[in-house]
């Protein structure tokens, strides 16, 4: 097992190198660069910049250099732990990402907890009460949950909230707390706002997880080891929780590692629609503005977390299931 983890860790730099090239290629792929889109924005607002200024900026950012030189410059910075400077904000990317990281992670954690707290008990109920009325209700809700795009749900809920209650439910803070330093009052204000994005972000995942939990558990419920446990006089709910649920949930728990990149990404479209101050909208803006070092940094961190998350999933699975653990030993 230890050898397996070490092997995977040794592979990490190679994978990151491949990903960094791909990410850089993709970010560079659209025609033009940051300055062309910057000038276009300026021109549309009526102001103009003279050619000398443009040339100076081009030189400063190295935008006139060939692709590989730009890539190497970026890599050199990364090697020193420097994610580079954002072209648009003229500030270090590290700072920009750092500012939004806490809220991004908080929101994702809330959505994650919501998903599991609702989906697992409901899935267990559905499987143990198969074809009951509540099972059918859950099934119907599941289909709706999976089939509705979450940005759509966000728009509908925002419209309902605004048209019937006259409140705006965008953002994560009331206006007075938006720029305020952290305090208990600000945290309470956050809690008052975070539940709606939490539900919107969590609903599709909840529906999917509930379906998988139900299906997995139904597969396990008629296994001979359940009959044997029942025959030795175990009470029904203790039996269900100890044996079939444990086996049904194993493959699901092992997917927890995959939430790691999601914690960081901050659901791009929903966050943009709801004007949430997390990393999602920042990535979108960086891509549109061709702020290539900022976009590249976010994407690269995302790749890194995906690799680590997969590794965590594998370790979790081995830890939970002795059949896998012992096979590797």
């Amino acid at each position: 097992m230890l050898r397996f983890i070490l092997q995977r860790l040794l592979l990490l730099p190679l994978l990151l190198f491949v990903f960094s090239v791909v990410v850089f290629l993709l970010v560079q792929a659209p025609p033009g660069d940051f300055l062309t889109s910057y000038l276009a924005t300026l021109a549309s607002s009526g102001s103009s910049v003279d050619q000398a200024q443009v040339d100076a900026l081009t030189k400063q950012f190295g935008l006139d250099q060939p692709f590989h030189v730009q890539y190497i410059r970026w890599m050199e910075g990364l090697g020193r732990g420097d994610l580079g400077l954002s072209l648009e904000y003229q500030r270090p990317n590290m700072e920009l990402i750092g500012e939004r990281l806490l809220l991004t992670v908080l929101l994702a954690l809330f959505a994650f907890v919501f998903t599991w707290v609702i989906a697992i008990p409901a899935g267990i109920y559905s499987a143990t009460h198969q074809n009951s009325i509540l099972d059918y209700v859950f099934t119907l809700l599941n289909y709706i949950g999976v089939a509705t795009p979450n940005f759509m749900l966000a728009l509908i809920l925002m419209w309902v909230a605004f048209s019937s209650f006259g409140v705006s439910v965008t953002g994560l803070f009331s206006r007075e707390y938006e720029q305020a330093p952290w305090s208990l009052a600000r945290f309470i204000d956050l809690l008052q706002h975070i539940w709606l994005p939490m539900i919107i972000l969590g609903i599709a995942g909840t529906a999917r997880l509930m379906r998988v939990m139900r299906a997995n558990l139904l597969d396990e419920l008629n296994k001979p080891y359940v009959v044997a446990a029942r025959a030795r006089g175990l009470s029904e709910w203790r039996l269900v929780l100890k044996y079939p649920v444990r086996l049904a949930i194993n493959p699901l728990v092992s997917t927890i590692g995959w939430y790691l990149p999601q914690l960081f990404s901050g659901s791009l479209i929903v966050a943009t629609v709801m004007n949430l101050p997390n990393i999602g909208p920042m990535l979108l803006r960086a891509l549109v503005q061709q702020d290539m070092y900022l976009a590249g940094s976010i994407l690269l961190i995302y790749c890194f977390l995906t690799i680590i998350g997969t590794l965590i999933s594998d370790i979790l699975l081995a830890w939970l299931d002795p059949r896998i653990r012992m096979e590797n030993a």
Binding site: P224, Y225, A228, A229, R232, G233, Y243, L247, L320
Partner: peptide, 24 residues
């Protein structure tokens, strides 16, 4: 009934293979 199962009447099931939970 649960106090009788296992204590008064016990079962030796058909498939010893799968009658034990594989993760316990």
């Amino acid at each position: 009934m649960r106090d009788i199962r296992g204590a008064q009447i016990a079962l030796i099931p058909q498939e010893p293979m799968s009658s034990f939970s594989p993760v316990h």
